[in-house]
């Protein structure tokens, strides 16, 4: 069957046609739209590597059928910050060495952006770890990830205290 959707992808409105209703948002991004920054890990919603923002909220692209996305606004790691710049969460991941192999990192960063927007965790390390539990890092960079989310939260939510890093995580 022939399907078509119009969505706003990383700020650009695009009409997309595809033939098979089985196409997930993840496969659409990686295989058809040349946006491989979103990673495929488990492909079953358990690892978080495919996390993107749909209408501003983090979700797993692997469990989202593309056909359901008519009119949606999708943000991937490629569209998080203007070309040549870094989003505060990306900068915080670098500053805190919050990765090793890097495969889970786009999902971690998108999830952190979503978590900070939800406002649930603040800079409480316990709440950050709970809020980030949908993202697995097999290199176990969790300590750095927690520090990075703390730093990014400070710089985004409380810019005045952004310089004060170093809360115990």
């Amino acid at each position: 069957m022939s399907l078509s959707i119009t969505l706003t992808l990383n700020g650009v409105t695009r009409a997309i046609a595809f033939e098979d209703a089985r196409v997930t948002l993840l496969d659409l991004l990686r295989d058809r739209l040349d946006l491989p920054g979103t990673k495929k890990g488990c492909d079953r919603g358990q690892c978080g590597a495919c996390t993107v923002l749909v209408n501003g909220r983090r979700t797993t692209a692997c469990l989202t059928l593309a056909a359901t996305l008519e009119g949606a606004e999708v943000t991937t790691i490629e569209g998080l910050a203007p070309e040549g710049t870094l989003h505060p969460v990306q900068q915080a991941f670098i500053d805190n060495d919050a990765f090793q192999c890097g495969y889970c990192t786009p999902g971690q960063i998108m999830s952190a952006v979503g978590l900070i927007a939800e406002g649930r965790a603040g800079t409480d390390p316990e709440r950050i770890r709970e809020g980030m539990s949908g993202n697995i890092c097999r290199c176990a960079a969790y300590h750095g990830i927690t520090l990075a989310v703390q730093q990014a939260t400070r710089s985004m939510v409380h810019p005045d205290t952004a310089a004060k890093t170093g809360d115990a995580a």
């Binding site: 978080g48 983090r58 797993t60 469990l63 979503g114």
Partner: peptide
Amino acid sequence: GASGQLRNA
């Protein structure tokens, strides 16, 4: 239940 991503969906 689940994770932040799944609870959003």
